[in-house]
């Protein structure tokens, strides 16, 4: 009798152990434009702004969140390196709530620090827009952001070149005029 009670207890225990429910919370549809943004000639130390438009095509409201994230190296455009620091990207809002069928704009600011290593670079980063959801499947759309900075790195060389040119031309001119000023003896 005691053995039967123990067996029944064990079976009950096993049933309880293996009874968690795997709740995986219907359709999702939204769009972001533009799909790709290219910023050229951005000098280090300056910032550029542009606008992303998010269109909630669903029949329910969604909260959308924004992040900048490093793209997989093999997915970047040819000749592009990954942006060194995602904190150079900021959004006017970290999240927005959009009613069904509506759209809204978010301003994105790209601010490159005043560093020599930031000059003459071609970078790429991805701006992720996610529809927050507790469902099993979620959707995230990435906007490609391609940033090219101007080559201010060559300024030091340019200034040095100007200085050298002034010295050389100065010497040349000095000797030219000196020679020209010398009386000629025949």
């Amino acid at each position: 009798m005691i053995g039967r009670i123990k067996l029944a207890g064990l079976i009950a225990a096993l049933l309880v152990i293996f009874l968690p429910s795997f709740t995986l919370a219907q359709d999702v549809n939204f769009g972001v434009s533009p799909a790709e943004v290219r910023i050229n000639d951005l000098p280090p130390g300056e910032a550029a702004e542009f606008v992303l438009t998010i269109h909630n095509k669903d029949d329910v409201a969604h909260v959308f969140t924004f992040t900048a994230s490093e793209p997989p190296e093999e997915e970047t455009r040819e000749g592009r390196a990954r942006l060194p620091d995602d904190s150079w990207i900021s959004f006017s809002s970290q999240e927005i709530e959009l009613a069904a069928g509506s759209e809204a704009n978010v301003t994105v600011t790209v601010a490159i620090p005043q560093e020599q290593k930031g000059a003459g670079q071609d970078w790429e980063t991805w701006l992720g827009v996610t529809a927050e959801s507790s469902d099993l499947l979620g959707v995230k759309l990435y906007v490609r952001l391609l940033v090219s900075t101007v080559g201010t790195r060559s300024n030091i060389g340019l200034v040095a070149g100007i200085a050298v040119a002034i010295v050389l031309l100065g010497y040349g001119g000095y000797y030219y005029f000196k020679r020209k000023a010398k009386p000629k003896y025949h």
Binding site: G31, V37, A48, L141
Partner: peptide
């Protein structure tokens, strides 16, 4: 001048 180019009026969108 800094130039910002939006690639057309392209919209990226997928649905499940």
């Amino acid at each position: 001048t800094i130039t910002i180019t939006m690639t057309g009026a392209n919209e990226i969108s997928i649905s499940l």
